[in-house]
Simulated scan of single mutants.
Amino acid sequence: MTTYFSDRSFRFLRALARRNERAWFHAHKADYEAHVREPFRRLLSDLHPDVLAVSPHFRADPKPVGGSLFRIHRDTRFANDKSPYKTWQGARLFHERSRETAAPSWYLHLEPGDCFVAAGIWHPESPVLRRIRQFVVDNPAGWKTAAHAPAFRRRYRLGSQEMLVRPPRGFPADFEFIEDLRRRNFIALRSIDDATMAGPRLRQVLARDLRATAPFMDYLCAALDLEF
Rank of each mutant, 00 (worst) to 15 (best):
A173K: 14
N139M: 08
R155P: 04
E38Y: 08
F116W: 05
R130H: 13
C115I: 03
F94V: 11
I187A: 01
D174W: 03
A53F: 04
I178A: 05
F70T: 04
F228P: 15
A214H: 10
P215G: 12
I132F: 02
F70S: 03
R97I: 06
K82C: 09
V54I: 08
Q204M: 12
L44K: 00
F135D: 11
A151P: 13
L158A: 15
R130I: 13
E176S: 08
G142I: 06
A79K: 12
F177Y: 13
A79D: 13
L13E: 02
V54L: 02
D194Y: 03
A146Q: 02
L43A: 05
A141G: 11
V205A: 06
V54T: 10
R201P: 12
R18M: 14
R19E: 15
H95N: 07
H109A: 04
T2F: 08
R169F: 08
S6H: 07
F186K: 04
S126I: 10
T76Q: 15
R8I: 11
N185Q: 12
S191I: 05
G199P: 06
L164G: 10
I192N: 00
T87P: 06
A141V: 15
E125D: 14
S83G: 13
A79V: 13
R8C: 11
L158M: 15
N185P: 05
R41M: 12
A146Y: 01
W122V: 07
G113A: 09
L47V: 04
P56T: 15
L108C: 04
S55L: 03
R74N: 10
L226V: 13
P150M: 11
L44Q: 01
F25P: 02
L69W: 02
D193M: 06
A146L: 01
A91T: 04
Y4G: 00
R182T: 03
F152V: 07
S105N: 14
L206E: 00
R153T: 12
M217I: 14
A222C: 13
L206S: 01
V51Y: 01
F78A: 06
H57K: 12
P62A: 05
A207C: 10
V137E: 04
F135T: 14
S6E: 11
A119T: 04
W143F: 15
D81G: 06
R201K: 15
I132C: 00
T213L: 14
R183Y: 03
F78K: 09
H95Q: 06
K63R: 15
N185F: 03
